[in-house]
Amino acid sequence: MTNAPFKNQHLSYSRLTRFEQCPLSYRLHYIEKKQAEPGLALRFGKTIHAVLERLMKEVLDDERSGPLSEERAIELYREAWSAEQLTGMDVFAEGLRILRDFIRDQGVVDHRDVLAIEKEFRLPVGPFTVLGFIDRVDWVDDETVEVIDYKTNHQLFTRDEVDTSLQLSLYHVAAQRLWPWAKKVKLTFWMLRHGVRQETTRTEEQLADALAYVETLGRQTETATEYPARLNANCSYCDHRKQCPAYADALKGKREFLCEDLADLEAVAREREEVARLAKVLYARKEELEDILKAHLTEQDELVLGGVRYRMFTTTSLDYPLDPTLSLLSEATGLSRDEVLGKLGTIDKKALDALLKSLGKKLDKPRVSLLKAELDAHADKKVSPRFWAKEVA
C-alpha cells in the first residue's frame, strides 16, 4: 500500500468521522473495501430516512400543499421495511410511531417552502472535494434557509455536540453555496424518536475552523500508515465488527494492562480507561443479546436457557390527579388545600418539561424560555458529587 497523495477520490462526513472514531474501521471499509454488515440500528435508520425522503419528494413532484398522508407513509414504510429485510414487531411498531409523530409535528407542508430533498453538494476544501447529501432544506424567509438532518438516535445530543457538529458546519457551507441569496442558515437536527428539533447556528469563524479541520483530517487519511482499533460504545453498531480482532478480544474481556501498584495514579488512570472502554463494549453487547431474548419472549411466556429463566414482567406506577388528591387529603387531615399542597410541594421535572413543550405550541418561544428560566429560579437544586472523566483531544 502506497502513501501517494490523494488516495481518496473524495472526502465525506461519514468517511472523516469513521477515520476519526476508529482508523481500523476506516481501513476495512475504504481501503480494504471489506463487505459491510450494518446492524439493526443503521438499517432501521436507513429505512426511516428512505420513507421520509420519498414522502417529501412526492410533495415536491406533485406540487402539493397540506398535511402529509399517514396512509402513504405506512405504505412506503412497508416497502422500505421489506427492502431492508428487517424483522421484529417491536421495531416495526417503533417505526410506525416515529412516522405518525413526524406527520403530526410537520403539520401542513407547502411544496413552495421546501427547497430541496436529499440535496447533493460538492465542496472544495484545500486539495479535496467534500461530497455530501442534505436530507432537507426549507425556505424560512427571504434571507434565511433551514437545513434539516433527520436522526433516529435513541439519545438526544448535548448542546455542545449540536453547536460543534462538523456535519452541520459542512451543511451550512454547502447551503451558502447552493443558495447564495441566504444571509442566514438555521441548522436543525430533527430527533425523530423524541419529536424534538435541536437547532443551532454558526459564525464565520466557526465555519473557517471546521473547514481547516476537515482539510487536516483529510490529509491524515492520506498519510496514515497505521490504523489502530479504538474501542468505544459504538463498536456494537459497527458494520465491520465481525472482522475486528479488537472487538472480539473485548467481548472476551481481554485486558492489555493491569495496574500492579495502586499508588501509581498514572497506572490507575490507564487501567481505569481500559476497563471503561471494555465495559461500554460489553454493556452494549449485553443490550443487543437481551433484545434478541425479548423478541422471543413476545411469543412465549418464558425461556429457560443455560440454566437461566427469562421472563418479561410489567411494573405499575401511580399518578395522583391534583384536585381529587388535595381534596381527600385536606378532608382527612383537616389542613387547607394550600397547606397540603405546600407539604407535597414538588413537581416532577419530566412532567414540567412536557407541559412546557405543550405550551410551546400556544406561546411564542421567547415567552416559554422566560417562563422556564423563572421556574428554574424557584427550583431547589440538589448537588451530589459524581465521578467524571473525559478523554482529552
Score class of each variant (00 low, 15 high):
Arg270Phe: 02
Val51Glu: 05
Arg219Val: 12
Gln85Phe: 05
Thr144Pro: 01
Arg255Trp: 07
Glu290Phe: 13
Thr221His: 04
Pro385Met: 11
Leu359Cys: 08
Asp301Ser: 11
Leu322Ile: 13
Pro5Met: 01
Arg241Pro: 10
Leu335His: 09
Ile134Trp: 00
His378Tyr: 08
Glu271Ile: 09
Asp61Pro: 09
Asp101Asn: 13
Gly126His: 02
Leu318Met: 12
Tyr13Asn: 10
Glu205Ile: 11
Gln106Val: 10
Asp353Ala: 11
Cys259His: 06
Tyr310Val: 08
Lys119Ile: 06
Thr298Pro: 00
His296Ser: 15
Ser165Asp: 07
Gly360Arg: 00
Leu16Asn: 01
Arg309Thr: 14
Ile103Cys: 04
Gly39Trp: 03
Arg100Ala: 06
Glu391Ile: 14
Arg64Val: 15
Gln243Gly: 01
Arg197Lys: 15
His240Cys: 10
Arg78Thr: 11
Ser384Ile: 14
Asp142Phe: 12
Tyr13Asp: 01
Glu260Pro: 03
Leu359Arg: 00
Leu282Ile: 11
Glu70Arg: 11
Arg43Asp: 03
Pro228Val: 11
Gln155Cys: 07
Arg64Ala: 14
Arg193Trp: 03
Pro366Ile: 04
Asp90Thr: 14
Arg285Gln: 10
His194Met: 04
Tyr237Ile: 13
Val196Gly: 03
Leu52Asp: 01
Ser165Gly: 02
Gly39Thr: 03
Thr188Leu: 00
Pro321Arg: 06
Pro385Tyr: 09
Pro67Trp: 04
Leu76Thr: 07
Arg78Val: 08
Leu68Ser: 01
Lys46Val: 08
Gln300Asn: 06
Leu207Glu: 07
Arg100Tyr: 07
Ala276Pro: 02
Val308Tyr: 13
Glu20Lys: 15
Glu37Arg: 13
Ala332Phe: 09
Arg136Cys: 13
Arg159Cys: 03
Glu302Val: 02
Val130Phe: 08
Leu16Trp: 03
His49Asn: 11
Glu299Ala: 08
Glu287Asp: 13
Asp149Trp: 01
Thr201Cys: 05
Cys259Gln: 05
Met89Ile: 13
Val114Phe: 00
